[in-house]
Simulated scan of single mutants.
Amino acid sequence: MFYRPEDGHGLPHNPFNAVVSPRPIGWISTRGAEGADNLAPYSFFNAVAYEPPQLMFASTSTKPDRSDTKDSVANIRETGVFCVNIVEYAARDAMNRTSGPWEKETDEFDLAGIDRAPCETIPCSRVANAPANLECKLTQIVHLAGEANVVVFGEVTGVHLRDNCLRDGVFDVTSYQPLARLGYRDYARVTELFSMTRPGA
Score class of each variant (00 low, 15 high):
Glu155Gln: 06
Ala40Ile: 09
Tyr42Gly: 05
Asp115Asn: 14
Glu108Ser: 00
Arg77Trp: 05
Pro12Asn: 03
Asn38Lys: 04
Arg66Asp: 00
Leu134Glu: 02
Gly169Ala: 07
Cys136Asp: 02
Asn14Ala: 10
Leu179Arg: 08
Ala112Asp: 01
Asn85Val: 03
Ser43Arg: 02
Val156Pro: 00
Ala91Thr: 12
Phe44Asp: 02
Asp71Trp: 04
Asn129Leu: 07
Thr191Pro: 03
Asp168Arg: 15
Ala47Pro: 06
Leu161Cys: 10
Glu120Met: 11
Gly100Pro: 02
Leu11Gln: 07
Ser72Pro: 05
Asn75Pro: 02
Glu88Val: 05
His13Leu: 13
Val152Ala: 10
Glu155Met: 04
Ala201His: 07
Asp7Cys: 09
Pro24Phe: 08
Pro199Thr: 08
Thr60His: 14
Asn129Ala: 07
Asp172Gly: 08
Thr79Gln: 07
Ser67Ala: 12
Pro22His: 02
Val190Met: 03
Met1Thr: 07
Gly100Cys: 06
Asn149Gly: 13
Thr98Pro: 01
Ser43Asn: 03
Glu108Tyr: 00
Glu88Ala: 10
Met196Tyr: 14
Leu144Ser: 13
Ser72Asn: 08
Ile28Thr: 08
Ser195Gln: 13
Glu192Phe: 09
Pro52Cys: 01
Phe171Ala: 07
Met56Cys: 13
Ser61Trp: 13
Glu192Cys: 09
Ala91Asn: 13
Glu78Phe: 05
Asp172Ile: 09
Tyr89Trp: 15
Asn85Asp: 01
Arg185Thr: 09
Tyr184Thr: 10
Asp168Leu: 15
Ser125Glu: 11
Glu105Val: 11
Ala201Ser: 08
Ser99Cys: 05
Phe16Leu: 14
Leu55Thr: 11
Gly10Val: 03
Ala49Val: 10
Asp93His: 15
Phe57Lys: 04
Pro118Glu: 05
Val173Lys: 12
Trp102Tyr: 11
Ser59Gly: 11
Asp71Leu: 04
Tyr184Val: 06
His13Gln: 11
Arg77Asp: 02
Ala58Val: 12
Thr106Glu: 00
Asn133Val: 13
Thr60Leu: 15
Asn133Lys: 12
Asp65Trp: 03
Ala128Lys: 05
Thr121Val: 13
Tyr50Pro: 09
Arg126Gly: 09
Asn149Gln: 14
Cys124Val: 06
Lys137Gly: 06
Lys137His: 11
Phe16Met: 15
Trp102Ala: 11
Asp115Phe: 14
Leu182Trp: 15
Asn38Val: 03
Leu55Ser: 06
Gly35Ser: 00
Val173Cys: 13
Thr174Asn: 08
Asp168His: 15
Ile114Trp: 01
Leu11Gly: 04
Val73Phe: 01
Gln54Trp: 10
Ala128Leu: 04
Gly200Leu: 02
Ser72Asp: 02
Gly154His: 02
Asp186Trp: 15
Gly200Val: 01
Pro199Asp: 04
Asp107Met: 00
Arg189Leu: 13
